[in-house]
Design a protein around this nucleic acid. Structure first.
Lengths: 247, 247
DNA sequence: TTTGTTATTCTCATACTGAGATTGTCTCAC
DNA sequence: GTGAGACAATCTCAGTATGAGAATAACAAA
């Protein structure tokens, strides 16, 4: 049965309605760690549990638009458009993923620099940037969605300049290294990282400026860079190979 | 507004229904070129136009299950499970992508070895493996979905052993090189490719056999291999860098 | 038998990576 | 102030990977 035939014979009374939502995995780096934007549910099911921000798509609203709206609503911040990178992650539609009805969720992945604390939306009990890692179990299948988002983020850092989305307008090579170390969860060789970043065409460009002072615990002033015009890193910046991933 | 709150107040008479479909980009290599499985629509809209196989998800049916079902129905073949790799591609939900109603489509990408000709399903006017490239304009936004699938396929060949999904149970290094050349659309250096394939752990394993005879136009018998147990290629097999992709 | 094709293996120059060391600037504690 | 430690930036060197070309040998077809 193809799409047109189904729709021609579709009777909403025969097939139960399907709800479509967007859920957003918004990641940032804060307090030295990777954090995800979560809201605490105020109502059943899973009342009191933390969940990814998300909600029903509205008529006439495109999917990325719905994701951006949910993110803006939940952070209580507007005008994020040019500071936050957002992309589609995956869709989840297991029949019983929501106990009330059939819900298909399109998830989006967002990379944000350190933003102000979110204000809980009108409906959520709370909202916060929570450190990933020792998180409580999330509502619905949001654990799985978050895990998927984290893995995607780790991979994207390898071959795209998205790490700069976690940094401010200008940044030092060390700060950029901190992004990689935080997201990948591994320490990197400072010298080799420095060489690599500067050798990839279009990754970063120099501002000609340096930091105002040295690091908190010493060291010279670092040169400042801004994101370059590359959309792909070539050659890519590969994570240390993990044998268990390969087989 | 979060998911639960919306759903609690959701009234189907206020918001128009959303239909959820799956569409499948099934790729194979045939006649020396890359081909995609298309069906010809028998009904309006876009009657007579070629489109990706797909259809409405059924109650109680998971998304990958729906995609596999549609693929099996449209090819008229069963028991493809172990020969066809299938994975989620992306979702499309632009409000007016279907003129009749709001339709959100979850697309899936399938990699198949050379299969028998498809039989048109009960509803489609025709079904065929069509060479990608000089295709007519497809129905709906299926051009965009196909383009996305092709790009994903090209990328996946770099860091996963999926090329073996286009080959038979056993294959020669040259056949595998043919897969890469066909999907990437570039000629590869035979010697370097050979060295690379054998040096990536777990990509292929020898069967100890050779082909029955040399190639059609001469050459020695080639050793036969089967897919190995690697899930990721390390180091990856990178396409020749295309400058325009980077910026 | 000869010619051309192809599988497989080598060679060699270049590029990239991981590990470690060096140099010089800066902050902090004393 | 002075000394100790931290850190940015650069360099060295060995090991590994890649691109280009060539050599060798097995086979099909004329």
């Amino acid at each position: 049965m193809d799409e047109s035939e189904f729709l021609a014979g579709y009777d909403p009374r025969v097939y139960p309605a399907v709800a479509v939502t967007v859920d957003v995995v918004a990641l940032t780096i804060r307090g030295g760690g990777l954090r995800v934007l979560l809201i605490r549910r105020g109502e059943q099911p899973h009342a009191g549990r933390w969940a990814l921000p998300g909600g029903f798509i509205r008529p006439g609203e495109d999917l990325p638009q719905a994701a951006a709206r949910e993110l803006a609503e939940e952070t209580g911040l507007s005008g994020l458009g040019d500071r936050v990178h957002i992309e589609q992650l995956a869709s989840y539609g297991t029949p019983d993923r929501d106990p009330r009805m059939r819900v298909v969720s399109i998830s989006y992945l967002a990379f944000a620099p350190d933003l102000p604390d979110p204000r809980a939306g009108t409906d959520a009990a709370d909202a916060a940037w929570q450190p990933v890692g020792k998180l409580p179990e999330l509502a619905f299948d949001h654990d799985r969605i978050l895990a998927h988002g984290l893995e995607r983020a780790r991979g994207k850092l390898e071959y795209t300049p998205l790490a700069t989305s976690f940094a401010g307008e200008t940044f030092t090579i060390s700060e950029l290294r901190g992004v990689y170390e935080t997201v990948w969860g591994v320490p990197l060789h400072a010298g080799n990282f420095h060489r690599k970043i500067l050798s990839v065409p279009g990754f970063v460009e120099s501002t000609g400026e340096t930091t105002e002072s040295g690091g908190a615990r010493g060291g010279p002033r670092a040169k400042l860079y801004r994101a370059g015009d590359a959309r792909l890193l070539h050659p890519a910046l590969l994570r240390p190979a993990r044998e268990e991933q390969i087989r």
